[in-house]
Each structure stands twice: as C-alpha cells, then as structure tokens.
C-alpha cells in the first residue's frame, strides 16, 4: 500500500510532477524502483525522438554519400566522419558549451542550452551519422540484378528509389540498424553526466541510480534495478525492430533464410 503512495509521489518526478524533494534518508526499495523508472521516461524520450528524426537524415546522408558529385558527397562524408570519429561524450560537452556561447549572442538558442532540446540535437546528429554509415553500406550492397530488373520495368529516378532501392536498402540494413537503436538508447544515459544540467533534479534513470548509489554508498541495489529496466527496454526494442524486419521481408521465401545477408555487425 505504501508503495502506491511512493508511486504517486515520485512516478513522474523526472518531469517535475509530484514531490519536490528527493528522498534523503531511509531509502526503500520501492523508492529506488519508482524513481529510476521515472527517469527512464527521459531515456525513452531521447531515444525515440532521436531515432525517428535520425532515420530521415540518415537516409539523406547515405544517399548523399553515394552520389558521384563531390559537392554532395564530401559534406556527407565529413558529417559521418565527424560524428563517428569522435566520442559522443565529448560531443555532448562541446555541444553544450557551444550552445551556451551561442545563447549569449542569439537569445533564440536559449532552449538548446537545456537538456531536453540541446542533448536531443546532439543525439540526433550522432545517430544520423552512425545510421547513415549503416545505410550507405546497405545501399552499396543492393543487388545489381534488382536495379536491372527495375530498369527493365521502366522504373527510373524517384520511383525506382522509392519502390526498389530504398526498401532493399532497409532490408539489408535492418539487423545492423537494430543494433544501432539498442546502443542509441544506451547512449542516452550520458546526457546528464556531461555539461547538461538536470534542472531541479529532473534526471534520467542513471542520474537517479547514481544519486542513490552516492547516498547509500551501496551500488548493489540501484544499478541492478537500472540494468533490469534497460534489459526490458532492449527486449522491447528488439521486439519492435524484429516485427518491422518481418514486415520488410514478408514477400521473401520464408524457409530459405529470412534475412538476405547479415551485414557485419557495426557497434558504436
């Protein structure tokens, strides 16, 4: 019964709803589970939005990198190199201080100096670069026969891309993209450990977990709770991506290997 009160008090604490003060002493297991779970809202928020927005930009970047025209190819290559070649941790730091100094000259950048927008932008660009590289690799592996068949049917330009190239690219890239999605969700825990401030202690799951670990000096309770939440999240991501994968491959003969060919595993 008591746990329901805790849930009401701290369930939405990470969004600033509910009790203002975090528990200070005599931490119960229930409080830790509820608060860390409340922090997961932020992880899901960052992960889902960055993934959805990143998907669009990644397609553009991948197509851009495959162009012959250097004016389009070079920026895409540099974008991918810049975000894949440097640590996300440093990107967060740099992004935060960049937004801070931009804010002083242009007040328009005000929201970017806070986590909900600024960190999202960094994550969005970062995942676009990683996904762009995956999509580019897949685009290069689209079978030549598919293109020739498309030509034979008289499909050209945008219609060919939309109907033949793009679906095949997605199909080839999907296993690696699933990995990227998992690691993107894992990367969201970095946000509040870089410059971005957790205003009024509205943090993500790891923020609360380390808060409890610091206060109790006992890492053996909060971190396993966090781990359980993330394993659950990972399973959900794998489930959703697997469902999409089945839909993408639904026209292929099911017995002989559902997936075309596994791309080499790309982890971040």
């Amino acid at each position: 019964m008591e746990c329901w009160d805790t849930l009401a008090q701290y369930g939405l604490r990470s969004m600033g709803i509910g009790e203002r003060l975090l528990p200070r002493s005599d931490f119960t297991l229930c409080q830790q589970v509820v608060l860390i779970g409340s922090g997961m809202i932020w992880n899901i928020y960052f992960g889902v939005l960055a993934l959805v927005a990143g998907f669009a930009l990644a397609t553009l970047v991948a197509v851009g990198k495959a162009q012959a025209n250097p004016l389009i190819r070079k920026p895409s290559e540099w974008f991918i190199f810049l975000f894949r070649g440097s640590p996300l941790f440093i990107q967060f730091f740099f992004g935060y201080f960049l937004f801070l100094s931009l804010k002083q000259t242009f007040p328009i950048f005000d929201p970017l100096a806070s986590a909900w927008a600024g960190a999202l932008v960094v994550l969005f660009l970062n995942t676009s670069a990683y996904t762009g590289e995956i999509f580019y690799g897949a685009l290069m592996s689209v079978p030549k026969g598919d293109q020739e068949a498309a030509s034979a049917y008289g499909l050209t330009g945008w219609r060919r891309f939309r109907r033949i190239t793009w679906p095949t690219m997605l199909r080839l890239a999907w296993p690696a993209y699933t990995n990227e999605a998992i690691f993107l969700f894992h990367a969201t825990v970095l946000v509040f450990f870089t410059g971005f401030p957790a205003i009024q202690q509205r943090g993500d799951a790891l923020y609360y977990a380390s808060y409890f670990a610091d206060k109790t000096f006992n890492p053996f309770v909060p971190y396993p709770i966090l781990a359980a939440y993330f394993i659950l999240l990972t399973l959900v991501v794998i489930g959703i991506m697997g469902a999409v994968n089945r839909r993408l491959n639904r026209h292929l003969p099911q017995a002989a290997g559902r997936r075309p060919r596994l791309l080499p595993q790309i982890i971040r």
């Binding site: 825990v189 971190y223 993330f230 399973l235």
Partner: peptide, 21 residues
C-alpha cells in the same frame, strides 16, 4: 548478453564502487 543489454556507463559506475568495496 548482460553487457550488451545494459549501458556500459552504468557498468563503469557500478564496477568502480563494487570492486573497491
């Protein structure tokens, strides 16, 4: 499976205290 399913940063924060203790 465990390290793949859980953010590495959580492991870093966890093991440093856990090993020490």
């Amino acid at each position: 499976a465990l390290v793949r399913g859980v953010p590495d940063i959580a492991f870093f924060l966890f093991f440093v205290i856990a090993l020490d203790q």
